[in-house]
Design a protein around this nucleic acid. Structure first.
Length: 585
DNA sequence: GCCGTTTTCGGCCCGACTGTTTTCAGTCG
C-alpha cells in the first residue's frame, strides 16, 4: 500500500471524527499523522518492515497499530466502523466554503442532505435558512460557495496565481502610507498549487488599503471585510486575502502569514516553552515585560534560538529542529544554475528555433544550454528520427558559431519504450552530447513493470538524465507508480541525474522525492523543459523552487557546475562541445 | 490521539470575521 493511500485513509478518519464531533485534538492528531506520512521519504511499508515507524513524530502507538493493520490487510476495521451510516456524499458538503463539520452535520441530519445537488436544492427551497444557527445570509453564502466549487478547481498552479498576486500587491504598494507589501502564504513557500493568495501590507492605517483593495478592477466579489483582514474573489475565481498590520508588527506578521499552519503551531509552542506568546503582532514575554522590537523574520527566529528558516522549508517536516541544531542546508540559489538542458525547438514540438532558444539562453546569462527535442516514438510531438537528429546538428553548429561564449550542447529527450529500451539506436545516441531519457507513454503501467522499465533506462550507459520521473501533471494526472530505491540505485551507479522539471504543471521530481534522491546521493538536474524562448528560465523560476523545497543545496545540483566541469565530470565527454568555437570540418 | 529535563496526566497556537445572536459558535487560516 503506497503512502498516498495511507495519507488519504488517515485524512478520511479525521474528517469522519470531525463530523462526529470528536475531540478536535484527536482530529488534529490524525491530520498530523497524515502529513507525517505524506512527507515521508520512504514507504510506510518499509518503515514497518524495519521497525522504524515508532521514530516518526506524530505517529504514536495507536495510529501505528492502525497502520500495521492497514498495510498488512489492506483494510482498517476502525475506519469501517466509523464510516458506517455516513453516506459518502456528506464529505463533499464540507468542501463548500463556509461549510464546516457542524453545519454539514446539521444539513445532513436535519434535512437529509447527502450530496452537493441536494444541498443546492435545499437552499433553493429555502429550507436551510430556517435551521437553528443558520439564516438567510448563510443560505446565500452556501449557494455562492456551491457556484464557486462548480466553476473553479479547488487549487490553481503557482505559476497562474503568482502574476495575479503580484498585480494586486503592486497596486497596494502604491497606496499612500504603505511601507511594505509582501506576497505571503503558500505562494511564498513555493507550493506547486495554491488554494488562495495571501498579501501582507505594513501600513499605520488599514482603511485606505482596504478601500483600494476592494475597489481594484480585478476584484469580483468581497467575501469578508474587516478592519485588518479582507477576503475577495478575483475574476478568475481565485481567493485573495489581504492583511494590514502596523509596520512594527511586520516581521511577526510575515512569519505568521507565510505559514505553514503546522510550522506556526510548532513555532508558537516553541515560544511558549521559552516564556513568550507569539501571534501575528509580536513576540510578547509572558512575564509582562515589553515585547522586543523585531525588524526581520531572522531576528524573530533568532529570539527563539533558531537559524533563519527559508520559506520553502516551512512545512514542519524537521526544519525547526534543524534550525535549532544549526544543521539547515544552504539552499541552492538562482545564481547557482550555470546552465540548463532539456530545451525543445521547432524541430519537434517547440515554438522557437534552435537559434531562438540559444539566443535566449545567452541573454539569460547561462554558460551552457542543451538542445533536446523529442525522439521518433513521440509522433504527436513530431519526434526526431536518427536522420533528422543528424540534420539538426547543422543548426546547432551554426548556433555555436553565433555564440562563442556559450557552450551549446546537442542532445535528445529520448523516449523510454515500454520495455525500458531507448527509442533511438546506440550509434545515434553516441553522436550526441547528452541523452535525457523520459517516459511519455503507458504512464499507468503497473508498479513492478514501471520499476523495471526505469531501472533499465537509467542503466543505459549513454543516458545522463532521467526526465520528469513521476510523469504527473498537476491538477490533471497522477504520478506513475514505481519503486524509487532500485531506480536510484541504478541511477547512482551509472552517474545519472534525476531531473527537476520546471514546467509549472510538472515540477517533477517533486520536493518530497527530491529529499529522497538527495539522501541517496543522486544528483539533480534543474531543467526548464522549455518549448518557447519565454519558458527557458522556468528552470530558475519554478524547478529551482521545487528543489529548494526538497532541501537541495548547490552541491546536489549537477548543473551548478561551470560548463567545462559539467562536460568533463558529468557528461564525461572530452569531444567538441567543450570548445564550441573550434571548427570541426 | 500525541507527547514529556518541570509533567505518564493534562495539556494541546492564536486571532479575525460573520451571522445569528443578546454573548458567542462556527469557520477559516
Amino acid at each position: 500500500m503506497d503512502n498516498k493511500t495511507i495519507e488519504a485513509t488517515l485524512l478520511e478518519i479525521a474528517r469522519t471524527l470531525e463530523l462526529k464531533g470528536e475531540n478536535p485534538f484527536k482530529v488534529r492528531a490524525y491530520e498530523n499523522a497524515a502529513r507525517a506520512v505524506a512527507s515521508l521519504e520512504e514507504d510506510v511499508a518499509t518503515l514497518i518492515r524495519e521497525e522504524r515507524l515508532k521514530h516518526i513524530p506524530g505517529i504514536g502507538a495507536s495510529i501505528r497499530e492502525k497502520l500495521l493493520e492497514l498495510c498488512g490487510t489492506g483494510q482498517l476495521a476502525y475506519l469501517e466502523e466509523l464510516r458506517a451510516g455516513i453516506p459518502a456524499g456528506v464529505f463533499d458538503l464540507m468542501k463548500v466554503q463556509g461549510m464546516g463539520p457542524k453545519k454539514t452535520k446539521a444539513v445532513w441530519e436535519l434535512l437529509g442532505v447527502t450530496s452537493l445537488e441536494e444541498l443546492e436544492k435545499a437552499c433553493r427551497d429555502d429550507r436551510v435558512a430556517h435551521l437553528k444557527g443558520f439564516g438567510k445570509k448563510t443560505q446565500d453564502k452556501i449557494l455562492s460557495g456551491l457556484a464557486l466549487l462548480a466553476r473553479t478547481r479547488d487549487r490553481v498552479l503557482r505559476a497562474e496565481a503568482l502574476p495575479q498576486a503580484r498585480r494586486l500587491a503592486d497596486a497596494l504598494a502604491a497606496v499612500e502610507g504603505v511601507e511594505r507589501v509582501e506576497v505571503a502564504g503558500s505562494l511564498r513557500r513555493g507550493r506547486e498549487t495554491v488554494r488562495d493568495v495571501d498579501i501582507l501590507v505594513a501600513c499605520p492605517k488599514a482603511e485606505p488599503v482596504m478601500e483600494a483593495f476592494v475597489a481594484h478592477e480585478d476584484v469580483a466579489d468581497v467575501i469578508a471585510r474587516g478592519p485588518t483582514k479582507t477576503s475577495v474573489h478575483v475574476h478568475s475565481g481565485l481567493q485573495v486575502d489581504v492583511r494590514v498590520v502596523p509596520p512594527e508588527s511586520f516581521a511577526c506578521a510575515l512569519a505568521y502569514f507565510t505559514g505553514s499552519k503546522e510550522f506556526n503551531v510548532h513555532l508558537r509552542q516553541l515560544a511558549l516553552d521559552q516564556g513568550f506568546t507569539l501571534n501575528e503582532y509580536s513576540l510578547r514575554p509572558l512575564d509582562g515585560t515589553p515585547a522586543p522590537a523585531l525588524a526581520t523574520e531572522a531576528e524573530l527566529f533568532g529570539k527563539l534560538g533558531l537559524a533563519y528558516v527559508e520559506p520553502e522549508l516551512r512545512e514542519n517536516t524537521g526544519e525547526v529542529d534543524a534550525a535549532r541544531a544549526g544543521t539547515l542546508p544552504t539552499l541552492v540559489e538562482p545564481g547557482d544554475i550555470a546552465g540548463v538542458l532539456h530545451v525543445h525547438t521547432t524541430w519537434s514540438d517547440g515554438v522557437g528555433s534552435v537559434a531562438d532558444m540559444v539566443e535566449e539562453a545567452a541573454r539569460l546569462g547561462y554558460g551552457y544550454v542543451g538542445i533536446s527535442d523529442h525522439s521518433q516514438a513521440a509522433r504527436y510531438a513530431n519526434g526526431l528520427s536518427p536522420e533528422r537528429l543528424r540534420a539538426q546538428r547543422e543548426e546547432v553548429e551554426a548556433a555555436r558559431a553565433a555564440h562563442p561564449g556559450l557552450v551549446v550542447l546537442h542532445g535528445v529527450e529520448c523516449d523510454i519504450l515500454s520495455d525500458g529500451a531507448l527509442d533511438l539506436p546506440d550509434d545515434c545516441l553516441a553522436e550526441l552530447d547528452f541523452v535525457i531519457a523520459s517516459v511519455h507513454t503507458e504512464l499507468g503501467m503497473d508498479r513492478d513493470r514501471m520499476t523495471a522499465r526505469l531501472v533499465r533506462a537509467v542503466s543505459h550507459p549513454l543516458v545522463r538524465v532521467l526526465g520528469h520521473p513521476l510523469g504527473r501533471r498537476l491538477l490533471e494526472r497522477e504520478s506513475s507508480q514505481f519503486d524509487w530505491e532500485p531506480v536510484l540505485e541504478a541511477a547512482g551507479h551509472n552517474g545519472v541525474a534525476i531531473e527537476v522539471n520546471g514546467q509549472p504543471q510538472r515540477l517533477d521530481a517533486d520536493w518530497i522525492h527530491i529529499r529522497r534522491i538527495r539522501a541517496r546521493g543522486v544528483k539533480l538536474c534543474i531543467n526548464p523543459d522549455a518549448h518557447a524562448p519565454g519558458t527557458l528560465d522556468d528552470a530558475r523560476r519554478h524547478a529551482l523552487v521545487e528543489a529548494r523545497r526538497g532541501w537541495a543545496s548547490r552541491d546536489d545540483v549537477v548543473n551548478s557546475l561551470p560548463a567545462d566541469r559539467f562536460v568533463s565530470e558529468f557528461l564525461r565527454r572530452q569531444a567538441a562541445p567543450a570548445r564550441p568555437a573550434r571548427a570541426r570540418r
